[in-house]
């Protein structure tokens, strides 16, 4: 292709997209407004409530999911240290963002994974799409998102979800496909229908694999925090960004460690929850 046609092609696509944005941008923005409001609300809830209350609520949530004193104490220590080093507000903003984007990724990803496990054709189509979502540099798809929705929390959330959703889809699909055929046949022989097979056999037995996907999704969402901060998502990413441009080494490390800290809390709590759902695996004969 010579450089002239290439230039024309580029200009054509860009112009078309720009006019599309002008035409429908406002409408799409309206569409996502409730999501933005929700993000803002949860962020305010976490940042403006008195910190002992927030801390207690988080520790309670960790206890409910993990039922492990060790994990609760670890969480308490992590959060107190974060507060001591003055990163409480930013951490809370990041937390709100991560919880919202992880929940969005899971509520979208699980059903997609389930449908994908039932159709080989869909699997053939979706796999390359997921590959693209995971490998395409996130800045590239940030461009259209920012063009349409501007900068702020909602485009940030979308970018994080696009990046973090592939593992949960993949692992759900894989987990269901790996469920032993004989057990499935047994359910069928007893007259189970499709939904009964799904909820009574396939999903419970795929759970260890699905929990692996949940873990990966959370980790990938957290790793997007800094990049999302470039399009105006508040939180721990902002000071890191500042630290990069001003070469504030300590500030970068501290905020980075805060991200690592909440990643570990998320991971331990969700894995402990998954394990509790799989008590049957611990017990063995002899």
């Amino acid at each position: 292709m010579n450089s002239d046609t290439l230039r024309q092609l580029r200009r054509f696509v860009d112009m078309e997209f720009r006019s599309f944005t002008r035409e429908y941008g406002g409408m799409l923005e309206k569409l996502f407004e409730p999501l933005g409001d929700f993000l803002l609300f949860s962020e305010r809830l976490l940042t403006q409530s008195p910190w002992p209350m927030v801390l207690a609520a988080i520790l309670f949530a960790v206890w409910v999911t993990s039922r492990s004193l060790k994990i609760v104490l670890g969480t308490a220590a992590t959060l107190l240290l974060i507060g001591y080093f003055g990163m409480w507000q930013d951490t809370m903003r990041t937390l709100a963002m991560i919880v919202a984007s992880t929940l969005t990724a899971l509520t979208l990803g699980l059903p997609i994974g389930i449908v994908m496990s039932r159709s080989d054709r869909l699997q053939r189509w979706l796999t390359p799409a997921l590959d693209v979502m995971q490998t395409m540099p996130s800045f590239v798809y940030l461009i259209p998102v920012v063009m349409i929705l501007g900068i702020g929390r909602v485009p940030g959330l979308l970018a994080v979800v696009v990046y973090a959703i592939p593992p949960i889809i993949r692992f759900t699909n894989l987990g269901i496909r790996l469920v032993a055929k004989d057990v499935l046949e047994a359910a069928e022989a007893f007259g189970a229908n499709g939904l009964q097979k799904l909820f009574q056999v396939q999903l419970p037995l795929a759970l260890p694999t699905i929990m692996g996907g949940v873990n990966q999704t959370i980790m990938m969402a957290l790793s997007m925090v800094v990049i999302a901060s470039m399009i105006g998502v508040p939180g721990l990413g902002q000071p890191v960004l500042k630290a990069i441009s001003n070469q504030y080494f300590t500030q970068g490390v501290l905020n980075g460690l805060a991200i690592v800290g909440i990643a570990i809390v998320f991971d331990r709590a969700s894995q402990a929850y998954g394990k509790r759902l799989q008590r049957h695996l611990e017990a063995t004969h002899e």
Partner: peptide, 11 residues
């Protein structure tokens, strides 16, 4: 039906 490899629901 009763199966050769039992096919019990492990969970």
């Amino acid at each position: 039906m009763v199966f050769q490899k039992f096919a019990l629901f492990p969970h």
